[in-house]
Every structure is written in C-alpha cells, then in structure tokens.
Design a protein around this nucleic acid. Structure first.
Length: 891
RNA sequence: GGGUGGUUAGCUCAGCUGGUUAGAGCACCUGCUUUACACGCAGGGGGUCAUAGGUUCGAAUCCUAUACCGCCUACCA
C-alpha cells in the first residue's frame, strides 16, 4: 500500500458502507419487500437460484452469480413485474458425506460404527449450520431473495417430488436396475455418474506383456496401461480382419503368473493399427471389455474390493492396494520374462470430482435412467430457440452432449441423500415407496419382511427438479401456476450437463413445459494469475471479507465491471477498489447536489423544458442515450457493458462535466434554477438506474434526496425504472457541446504543458470560423469560466493573436492564451513541433487515400467527403501552427 | 482425437453490421489542500491490434492457414 493510500483511510468524508448496508437490508426484510405474491395481476418474472452446496460457504463465483440474478430481479421489479427469486441450498450427497466421515475418522470413529441413523442426524446438523451461513452471506450481498420460499433439496416437499418422479419414470420403464460397469471412487466408495468424473491428463506408461500360447512356444503380446487388471483377464481379443492373428482365434493362452487358461476371441472393437493389435480382455474392469465379454460370453472376474484393494481373485496379491499390486506384478513379470518393453504414454485418467482419486471402472448393481426419450424435447427446445443460451455458443455444447446422451447412473452407495424408494421382497419382487409399503401395496407379502434398497439417489436427481419442486410441485400448484416457467437461469458453464440440461428434460417430462426461457452462462472466477479460484488451492477470496472492507455495493459493481461479457474474470483483492471508488463518487456528487438544493424544491419527476440552457439539454440527451444503451445491454444479458455505460455516464458526463459546468463562478453564488432542477432530476434517474447494481447506496441516497425535497420517501425498490425517451436525444447539440469541451481541453492542455500554476488566471482569445459557435461560447462563458481559469474572453471571427501567447489550433477555432512572462519558449516550441508532426502524419495518410483513384471511384460519397474535410482541416491547422511557431522563434 | 473461446497499451479488457487520430480502468510520470469527492481533480507518456497469406479502393474488424493460451468433450488398450 502506498503512502497516499494509508492517508486515505483516515479521511472522514468518504462513504461508510458497512453501517448503512446493514440497516437498509434489515428494513427491506422487515417490510417484506422481497416476498412474491402469487395472486398478483402483474406479469411474473421469476428466477430460481442455483442452489449452493451446503459443504462450504460461498466464494466469489457465487457472489458474481447472485449479483447477476439480483440485478435482473431488481430491474424487473422496478419495471413492474411480480418478481420471485427463489433461494435455497443443495444437500450435496457425496461432498457432505465425505466431510462428515473425515470428521468421524479424526475423532477415531467411523460412520459404520455409529450407524446409519446417527450418521444422518449428525450430517444434518452440520449441513444446517452451513446452510444458515450461506443464506446469511446471500443477505450480506444484498440479494433480494424471497426468503419465505427458501428451499432445500431434502425438504419434505422436494423429497416428495423426488419420489413422485422416481415412480413416474419407473412405471414408464425409464428407470431400471442393471449389472454394469460404473465409475467407482475407491475413496468415497460409491458409484459416480459419467458427469461426476473429471479427466486429468497425466504421464503414464504403456506396458507390453506377452502371454504364452498353450502347447506352443509362441507368445502373443498385449499393451496395457493398467497391468494389474490382468488378474481379471478372461480372454485376449484380436481384430477379425487382422490376418496376422487369424490362426490364433479360438486357441488358448496362459495368463502369466495366475496361470489361468484364457481363450483368444475375434472382436471388431480391436483396432489392428494400435499397439500390438492384441487386447487383453478384463470384462469386470473396463467398459469396452465388458461389452466384448457379453458378446463372447466371457467370465467376469472382479478383482477389486470396494476400497480398491485386491480381493481373493487376485491370488497371492490379495490385500494389496491397487498400485502396490501393479508394482509387484510388474516386477514379477519382468523376472519371468513376460515384460517385453515399457513405453511412456500420455493418458487422461478419470478422477472423482469430489476427492480427485482415480476412478475405477467397477462392475456392480446400479439404478439407471434411460435418457434418449427424455432428451428429445430438450433438444428441440434449444434448436427451435424456445430456450436461448447467452452467449449463444453454449447451445452447441449443450446440443452436442444431448445428442450423444447416455444412460444416467443414479444410485450412490452413500447414506446422505434421498434413499432409493424401492423395497425388496425375499424373492426379489420390488415395490416403489418412500415409506415401508402398506399391506395393500404389497399384496401377497408381509410388509415387515420387505427390505429397502440401501443406496441413495444422486444429488442431481433432486436438483434437476429444482425449477418446479421449489414451487411446490407436485403437491401445491399456486406458485407453479404463478411463476413457472421461470425466466432465466444464471450459472457457470461447468454444470451445463450436470444440471441445466437435466432441468430442461425434467421440465418437459414432468411439468410439460420448459423450466426457463433463457440460460445465462457467466464466466468462471479466476485469481490474478488466471487460475480458477478453488478452496483446495487456497486462492479463493471470501466475499464477506470484501464486503467488510469495501461494502457489498462495491463488491457487486466491481465484479460486474470486471467480468467481460461471456468471459472469465480475473480478480484480485484490489479489483474492488474500482467499485468502492465509484460508490464514493456517487455518494459525493449526491452530497453536493443535495447541498445545493438546500431548501429549494426542484421537481424530481419532470423537466420544465422552458428553462434549459445548452448544458442542461446536453446532459438530458446523454442521460437518455445512456438509458437506451443500458436497457438494451441488460436485455441482451451484457451486464458488464451495461455497468460500464452507467459508470462512464455518471463519472464523466455527469460529475466531470455537467456538475462542473453548472457550478457558479463563485462559491457563494447559487446554481441557476433550471440547471439545479436538471441536476436533481438526473441524479434521481442515476440512482434508479444504478439500483440493481448497487442497491444500498442508491436506496440510501434516494431516500435522502426525496426526504430533502418532498419531506418523505418511499423505497427505491419499486420506483419506476428509467426508460429512454428519444425526444431528449439531440445529436447536433451534443456535437456543439463537444466543441466547447474541445476548447476547454485545449486550454487546459496549454496551461498544463506550460506549467501555468492552476491558481493563475488568464485571458483567452478565440478566433472562430463560425459566427454561431462564437456566440455559443460568448453566451455561456459564465458556465465554463472556472473550468479554465479565464478572466476575460475575446471571441470572434476576426480575433487577433496577442503577441506573447501560447496557442492551440483545433477544428473550427484558434485558441490563444496570453501568458506574458510565463511562457518558456523552448517548451512551447517543442509542444508545437510535436503537434505539427502529429498532424502531418495524419495529413499524409489522408492525402494518400485521396490520391488513390480507386478510392475515389469506389468509396461512398460521405466517406470521401469526410476524408476531404479532414485533409483541409489538417492543412489549415498545420499552416496556422507553423505561423505561430515562426512567430515564437522571432521573439 | 473432436468441439469451442481467446490472442489489441506494463496488467485486465472495450472496439457488435469493414472507413475512428485504435479507446477505458488499473499501474506509471507531472502539476494541484480548486466552491461534493486525494476512494479526488487536471494534464501526459505508452500499442507495427499473435504470425503469414487472401478478399477489398480501404482490414484490429471479413476469409484461410499457422502458432501459443484456456475451457469442454472422448471407451482406442
């Protein structure tokens, strides 16, 4: 931190976010402003929150996502929609169970020791604690969630939705139980769906192992990346088209070490070009081998225990961990001459998305959902544009996955979650029910003898119902009727498959219609080095820490400003200074305007157009241009662009120009009434426009402003959203003002470069080309006199250059600042030289263009006209500057 | 291996349908206790727009390759 920064902290005039934010949020809660009314006549606008996991508190990714949702909700609330933002949390089966199990181990216990009921009770307590923390964080961020509708995937209502859906799919034949190869995490000791497996590239080896042909001295060599699986080999396979190996098909080889006899089969899966052209077949530990095994009726030998150690089928290797076994096995193979060679090999190993251990393909009984039929309407929805992705390119990712969808393994060998609602009789007959079936439900069987499936359902099996289960489906339809489908789902790209796609399928299958019309995919939050923020890397930033230091408004606006539309934001702690400074700026300018209002009563809602000067009209024009642009950007989900537009308007147009322009020449003079009205009106619009982005400072200031003028105030939350009005936009007038700004800037530049003390006033001579512009300057000099420290202004079409003066030549005006005794000739000369060189370069470019006959022949007329005008302008300015330069040299 | 996003100032990014003196914020340099704001004001320096071709009167912008960075996806042992 620099010295300057240290000093700033002590300054007392700055905006104090913390106290204001806490107070305001509590008021919003007390008045129940966030609560949605399902009987309202207003048009609905609803969003369901992507439920955060109860395993950990929120990070900046959540802060970004929830800011986006709150911006959309608050804007639409102001636009008169009945808004419902449904908050909630997700029980996160595997992740939560893993954490609680670790706690138990640390205490010297295990889940099996304390038993299922105790374990669930304990996990529940822990999850509830975290859930509360998460909801508290959302509040601190200013989220205007409808807390009366807070949902949780393990709530009774949501649980009954899960049961309902399970039964529905089972009856339809879409849910089935199968003996299949699944992804098995040896650490979490559960199956995983394909989407819960992450692929990580790693350096591996390809081991070449030879298998001896029975009754011959010949060998067949296979290549493998997982040699330990050979303990479960039940065949070798070759391509049926491969002439090299045709003669061996049907023969037998001896599996090294275990000395088991296994046969050689021909299967078209084998690629003769790869490796040796011979593949070892381990049906119980490889999905492809499993298929080959089924085709050739091979034995399926499971060699692993659920913890990844070798079981009794591994003979003497029994009890070894998988990679220890690999080591010993390779050693023995080498000793016995079976290891032909070893090559380096890049592979991408599947790892568990929760614990990052390498996943084993594992043969077990699991429940699956058949997906192909469910996918159809979900594909159509995106293809037809009924559901739109923002940015649009994500729809390709979605469609690619949907069109290649595979069955979904939904059973998990866990205790934490929705227990599979299936009961088995001794003979294997199944009954679907959450609770023990009644005698009527299982005719012919004694309910007491039925045993419930031990496993629980994948967490996503409850979260895919989120857009309607949170609204009371299937038991209560009032909210469903009022708020389904929701409008937009805002989330990160990493759960397009896990969650978004499945919600779309669920929406069509269970409720009969799409769950949302828009999917907004925001970027992934990264640290200052571009590394994804994560708890395990420890590079995350706690939003609460940022809120404490800078305020929630600053957190929100900083995040949105620094998240490029459709790209990943790179954030560091000082990213948030941008927002804090901006909030303070708004606070300061509001303070100023209110101070100047005093006991006057400007109209905040209407403009009296009879009492406007050019600057007033200009800021109104800029305001409405801004409104036009911001509204468009938000509608297109370009929130960062919207925020930047607001930022630039407020800081540059309003604070740096307009407010400075209307400041009277002397401190004790009053602001012209018409301008003060405009300032108050524009400020009010700014506050409303900014409210979705920075809810607290705008609420606070809005109330102050209204109290001051009207003696009372309502909340800004339901204030009328500022819509653009094109009749305020005046391009010509904006151009005129840009000319005035150019004069001001030129004078400032001259003074600054010549090191004129800011306190020193001077006269100003301007020779204008156009009489009207001269009038404009003359009539409004009072407004910008203080901006350029001008004493007397001399303006006209024939104004002469004072002898000793610095000059600046801009389009349409020659500017002279008489500064006898203050001008350093060398500095002024260098300055003019630089300017002239600059202009000459530009002139050169334009001249070349205009000398090209093809350009003149082909370019549209307005372009050539523009270029000609430019050329003239450059020439004129260069001439004048040269003259000025000569004159200086003559001094 | 397929798909997809990126490459513009020291850093993070704008620049949407080709014609701009290529912009902003941060950082940097200079000056400033100027009537709200030093979390500020004014001014300044800094870019052969990844590379190579092409289309065009004209390319940061369109097309084609190449390189690098990133993400997603994939059962080639």
């Amino acid at each position: 931190m620099s010295k300057q920064n240290e000093n700033k902290e002590i300054k007392s005039g700055a905006y104090q976010a913390a106290e204001i934010e806490a107070k305001i949020y509590q008021e919003w809660l007390d008045k129940k402003y966030f609560t949605a009314d399902n009987t309202s006549d207003k048009k609905p606008y609803s969003i369901v929150i992507p439920p955060p996991n109860v395993t950990s508190v929120l990070h900046l990714g959540h802060a970004l996502n929830n800011t986006i949702q709150d911006i959309l909700i608050r804007k639409h609330r102001m636009q008169g929609f009945e808004t419902a933002w449904i908050p909630g949390a997700d029980h996160a089966g595997i992740a939560t169970q893993v954490i609680v199990e670790k706690q138990l181990v640390a205490e010297g216990s295990t889940r099996r020791e304390i038993g299922r009921d105790k374990f669930i009770e304990r996990t529940q307590g822990w999850a509830d604690l975290n859930k509360d923390k998460i909801l508290h964080q959302l509040e601190k961020m200013g989220s205007s969630c409808d807390w009366s509708r807070t949902a949780y995937t393990l709530d009774d209502g949501l649980t009954s939705a899960v049961e309902h859906v399970f039964k529905h799919l089972y009856d339809k034949g879409y849910i089935y139980r199968g003996h299949r190869i699944v992804n098995w995490c040896i650490s979490c000791q559960t199956s995983l769906s394909d989407d819960e497996v992450e692929h990580e590239d790693s350096k591996g080896k390809l081991w070449y192992i030879r298998y001896k042909l029975k009754g011959s001295d010949e060998y067949l060599t296979v290549a493998t990346t997982r040699p330990e699986t050979m303990l479960g080999d039940t065949a070798l396979a070759v391509s049926p088209k491969d002439s090299r190996f045709k003669k061996y098909v049907g023969k037998t080889v001896i599996l090294p070490i275990l000395e088991r006899e296994i046969k050689i089969v021909a299967d078209s899966y084998v690629d003769p070009e790869f490796g040796t052209g011979v593949v070892k077949v381990t049906p119980a530990h490889d999905p492809n081998d499993f298929e080959i095994g089924r085709r050739h009726d091979l034995e399926e030998i499971n060699i692993l225990n659920i913890d990844g150690s070798i079981n009794e089928n591994g003979g003497k290797f029994k009890g070894l961990k998988r990679y220890d076994c690999r080591k010993q096995l390779l050693k023995e193979l080498e000793e016995k001459g079976h290891l032909v060679k070893t090559e380096d090999y890049d592979l991408s190993a599947g790892t568990c998305y929760r614990c990052h251990n390498i996943v084993e393909p594992y043969l077990s009984d699991q429940w699956f959902v058949k997906m192909s039929e469910l996918a159809k309407p979900a594909i159509d929805a995106v293809k037809s544009g009924e559901i739109k992705f923002h940015p649009d390119y994500w729809s390709k990712t979605y469609l690619h996955w949907m069109e290649n969808i595979r069955d979904w393994c939904i059973s998990r060998q866990l205790w934490w979650g929705h227990r599979i609602p299936v009961w088995y009789a001794e003979d294997g007959t199944m009954f679907i029910s959450v609770n023990r079936p009644s005698a009527d439900d299982c005719k012919g069987y004694d309910p007491e003898t039925l045993v419930q499936d031990e496993d629980v359902l994948d967490t996503w099996f409850s979260s895919w119902l989120w857009p309607f289960s949170t609204l009371g489906w299937p038991n209560n339809d009032a909210d469903v009727k009022a708020f389904y489908p929701t409008k937009v789902l805002s989330t990160g790209s990493e759960i397009i498959f896990l969650w978004v796609a499945r919600m779309v399928m669920a929406g069509y299958e269970f409720v009969g219609g799409l769950p949302f019309t828009d999917v907004y995919i925001h970027g992934t939050v990264r640290d200052a080095n571009g590394v994804k923020m994560s708890k395990s890397l420890g590079n995350g930033i706690d939003p609460l820490e940022i809120i404490e230091k800078y305020g929630a408004d600053a957190l929100r606006i900083s995040m949105v400003l620094s998240t490029p539309d459709g790209q990943d934001p790179w954030l560091s702690k000082n990213t948030f200074e941008v927002g804090r400074n901006f909030i303070n700026k708004v606070h300061q300018v509001s303070k100023f305007v209110m101070m100047r209002i005093g006991d006057k009563k400007p109209n905040l809602h209407e403009i009296n157009s009879d009492d406007l000067v050019i600057f007033d009209k200009w800021i109104l024009s800029r305001l409405h241009r801004t409104l036009e642009s911001v509204n468009k950007s938000i509608d297109e989900y370009r929130l960062s662009t919207a925020a930047k537009t607001v930022y630039n308007f407020v800081w540059n147009d309003f604070c740096s120009w307009y407010v400075e322009l209307i400041k009277p020449d002397k401190a004790d003079e009053e602001i012209r009434e018409g301008s003060l009205n405009v300032a108050a009106y524009v400020l009010n619009q700014i506050l409303k426009l900014m409210h979705p982005f920075t809810p607290f400072v705008t609420e606070n200031t809005y109330r102050d402003l209204h109290n001051l003028i009207e003696g009372s105030s309502e909340t800004i939350m339901f204030a009328k959203w500022p819509e653009p009005d094109a009749s305020f936009i005046d391009e010509k007038l904006e151009e005129s003002l840009e000319q005035i700004q150019a004069v001001v800037t030129a004078v400032r530049m001259v003074r600054s470069e010549l090191n004129v003390p800011p306190s020193k006033k001077s006269d100003l001579y301007i020779k204008v080309k156009d009489e009207a512009f001269g009038q404009l300057l003359e009539n409004h000099i009072g407004y910008f006199r203080s901006l350029i420290k001008v004493e007397n202004l001399f303006v006209g079409t024939d104004t002469k250059k004072p002898l000793v003066s610095a000059s600046a030549i801009i389009s349409g005006a020659d500017i002279y600042v008489p500064l006898a005794g203050l001008i350093d000739i060398e500095v002024e000369k260098a300055r003019l030289d630089k300017e002239i060189t600059n202009l000459k370069n530009q002139l050169e470019k334009v001249s070349r263009k205009l000398a090209n006959p093809d350009f003149l022949a082909n370019a549209p007329e307005d372009v050539t006209k523009k270029e000609r005008a430019k050329k003239e302008d450059y020439q004129e300015r260069i001439e004048k500057m040269n003259k000025n330069l000569e004159q200086i040299l003559g001094w």
